[in-house]
């Protein structure tokens, strides 16, 4: 935190490397990225470096972005779908400072999108790269803590335990209770952790036009899904995979079939559901869409653009 704050506050571009990492580190990460793309869903070990921010801030994603970013890139950073959290703002500032790149909050304008916990609602396009910050890359970790064993299980394609775990869920709850980091199978081979995105986003990974790269800093793993690659959420014939459904549309933009966050409005139990993807919500509002609470006095500014535009 302190180091990052120092770096983004003082203008000493000349004293550190382009995109912060030294060339040897970038080269090592670049080699791991190429292997990851060639073996979709397989976790490539890499020698993760200390970064001037805590692990919880997505140092794996930051290292992947640092290894691929160039002066012509336009970078977007989201945290839980929002561009304006401390984490997202700091990472954007970090690359604006160390790589001199242009940044944006508009999904359509970004060439690289680094994300924690969401995939944008707008379908990504060819040429875009989505970089995920991953805390725990091993989907089998909670079934088998030993890395030597999980590596063997991946090598032998021995994923029975994972199905047992999901089926126990069904036995206990009547449905698969896992809602985040819901495991997927990539191109019919590797079972992969999609990072703690809501399972709502899993279908967006399937045959995406964009290249998806995953970086786990503390766990020292990089993995990838090339564009147009089959990504299937694990399920059972009698309990097929389903995404979350929301009972009402976004209170601000009226959007449906989007992932909503609950926002508490007051201390009397008032609350509303709004798009977690703030850029998507702003675009819809700008296009004239209105939810039932748009412009309502109770709402005091998750999204300033909406507040100034909306009229009652």
């Amino acid at each position: 935190m302190t180091a990052l704050a120092d770096m983004t506050d003082t203008g000493k571009l000349a004293t550190y490397n382009f995109a912060y990492l030294d060339e040897q580190t970038k080269r090592m990460i670049r080699r791991a990225i190429l292997k990851g793309i060639a073996i979709p869903g397989y976790q490539v070990p890499f020698a993760s470096r200390e970064m001037p921010m805590p692990y919880g801030w997505g140092t794996g994603g930051v290292q992947v972005t640092a290894a691929i970013i160039g002066p012509d890139d336009v970078l977007k950073v989201i945290d839980q779908g929002a561009d304006d959290t401390t984490n997202a703002v700091s990472i954007r500032a970090f690359f604006a400072k160390t790589a001199g790149v242009e940044t944006t909050t508009a999904t359509a304008e970004a060439s690289i999108i680094q994300t924690r916990h969401r995939i944008p609602e707008m379908p990504l396009t060819e040429g875009q790269v989505l970089v995920y910050q991953v805390p725990i890359p091993e989907p089998l970790r909670f079934l088998e803590p030993r890395e030597t064993e999980t590596r063997k299980m991946h090598a032998l394609e021995e994923y029975g335990l994972m199905h047992v775990k999901l089926y126990e869920d069904i036995a206990r709850n009547g449905h698969i209770a896992t809602t985040y980091a819901y495991p997927v199978k990539v191109e019919g081979r590797y079972v992969m952790d999609p990072s703690p995105t809501p399972k709502f986003d899993n279908p967006k990974m399937h045959r995406s036009e964009a290249l998806q790269l995953f970086g786990a800093g503390r766990e020292k793993r990089i993995y990838a899904i090339p564009p147009h690659t089959e990504v299937v959420s694990l399920d059972f014939e009698d309990h097929p995979f389903e995404v979350q459904h929301f009972d009402q549309p976004c209170a601000l933009c009226g959007g449906e079939q989007v992932y909503l966050d609950e926002v508490v409005l007051d201390d009397r139990g008032g609350r509303m559901f709004v798009c977690s993807d703030t850029d998507h919500c702003e675009n819809r509002c700008a296009a004239g869409h209105r939810g039932e609470l748009a412009g309502d006095d109770l709402f005091d500014g998750k999204d300033k653009g909406v507040e100034t535009e909306a009229s009652t």
Binding site: E23, R30, I37, A38, I68, I69, G70, L211, P226, P227
Partner: peptide
């Protein structure tokens, strides 16, 4: 190195 890597990465991804 950055520009050549991006070309190789894009070529490998597609």
């Amino acid at each position: 190195a950055q520009s050549v890597f991006r070309a190789v990465m894009d070529a490998t991804a597609r």
